[in-house]
Amino acid sequence: MENHIAIYALTAKGTETAHRLADSLRVDCYVLDRYAVETDIPFTSLKETVADSFSKYESHIFVAASGIVVRMIAPLLKSKDVDPAVVVMDQEGAFAISLVSGHLGGANELARLIGDKTGAVPVITTATDCAGVPSIDLIARDQGLTIGNIGLIKHINAAILDGEKVPVYDPDRFLDLSAYSDYFMMVDDFEVLSRSRCGIVVDWSVHNLPERVLPLYPRCLSLGVGCRRGVPADEILELVRSVVADNGIAFESMFCMGSIDAKSDEKGLLEAAEILGLDVKFFSAAELDEIEVANPSGMVMKHMGVGGVCEAAAMMLADAKQVLVPKTKSARVTAAIAKKI
């Protein structure tokens, strides 16, 4: 789908507002059939249309009463970390109300953008925005960190709103809080978190965290995989999950999987990458052979023309000089993990 924003209009006046907005933003314009023109997508049932389109767009703008919108989208909402942005406008185009997914979904930003484009007044009700203080979910999103438990965001933001500094344990300094020193304090002692109202841990390792400590995962680890022909995805997944668990690694910190290009059509490998939610990149034997691996294999050299696949692929992806987790083998699969420097 080319456009990432859908706009919906139910009245003649609302259609005029939707068309004005469509002139300045790239949107798919859904209009009640009696008011639709050739460039619109006509509909007869808003409920059926929204049910079909809701998950297909990153953002939705409704030129309609907020009560109608709430009833339409309520059964479709899942979680603030996956729901699309929803903004509601009145048919005159005077206001743009951020209704759902204000932070992570970008509804607050969209409401402000609509205001810039049309002169509508953005209506933002998220507490941190109203108070003019930072929100940890936005900071994490903007710095490419994965939020481990979305339900803990409210405790961090509440402490900030109450004027408390939130302790942050970040041994590798993945999170840049230099602009937010009034709201967060870096700590080197992990135990400080258990004595605090709440806290944040930024790490690629798994920790046993106190109840109100938010884990943030830097996407800094690469997974290298080698396998024999015809190995099913389940066998690859079994080894990968074992390697991750045995080494105390948070899988949320994985950013990519790599292997040799001779396996680029290997069904089980591709299926495993899809199940794990990882993009997969393939390297030529010549590229992998440039990497000095800790555990070369004569068998791999014989069949692939390279000393090692999984360690070399992981290191190439991470631009690392060594592996974090060396080659681990099952009967027909090998896996290794490297970390970005």
Rank of each mutant, 00 (worst) to 15 (best):
L10C: 04
M315C: 15
M72I: 11
G102I: 01
A313C: 06
I61A: 01
C227P: 04
M254T: 00
L76V: 13
A314Y: 05
R34D: 13
V202A: 02
D28L: 10
G268N: 04
K340W: 08
V69C: 01
G67P: 01
M254H: 06
M185G: 01
A320Q: 10
E211F: 07
S55M: 04
V69I: 04
S53P: 06
N208H: 14
E38W: 06
K117I: 06
L104A: 00
D33I: 08
I150E: 02
F62C: 01
E292A: 15
I153P: 01
D279E: 12
A313K: 07
V280D: 01
K56G: 06
D265A: 11
T146L: 05
K117W: 09
G226Q: 09
L288K: 06
V166Y: 00
L113T: 11
A336F: 12
I236T: 07
A64D: 05
P134S: 02
I160P: 04
S45V: 09
L161A: 01
H155C: 01
E238F: 08
L32R: 12
K13T: 15
D129M: 13
E109D: 14
K340N: 03
T49S: 11
D172Q: 14
E287P: 10
L239N: 12
D182Q: 02
Y30A: 09
D319M: 07
L161C: 05
E252K: 03
A331D: 09
S135G: 15
Q322K: 15
I260Q: 00
R241L: 11
A285I: 10
E92T: 12
V69D: 00
D265I: 03
L214Q: 03
R332L: 07
A36Q: 06
V86D: 00
A331P: 01
G106F: 02
V206A: 11
I150L: 09
S59D: 06
K47S: 15
A331C: 05
N295H: 11
Y57Q: 07
N149E: 14
S259D: 01
A245N: 13
V201N: 05
V300P: 02
D129C: 07
R26D: 07
A6M: 13
A18C: 13
D176P: 09
H155D: 11
A64K: 05
I68R: 03
D90H: 05
A336Q: 10
S55F: 11
C130Y: 14
L99I: 05
E48L: 13
G14Q: 09
C227A: 13
V88I: 10
F174K: 11
V243P: 07
A159F: 10
D33A: 15
F251Q: 12
P326T: 12
S53D: 04
L175H: 04
M254L: 15
S101M: 07
H4P: 03
E290C: 13
L21Q: 02
E235I: 02
L145I: 02
F95Y: 12
S101G: 07
V50D: 03
A336P: 12
L324Y: 15
E287H: 12
Y180E: 02
D33V: 11
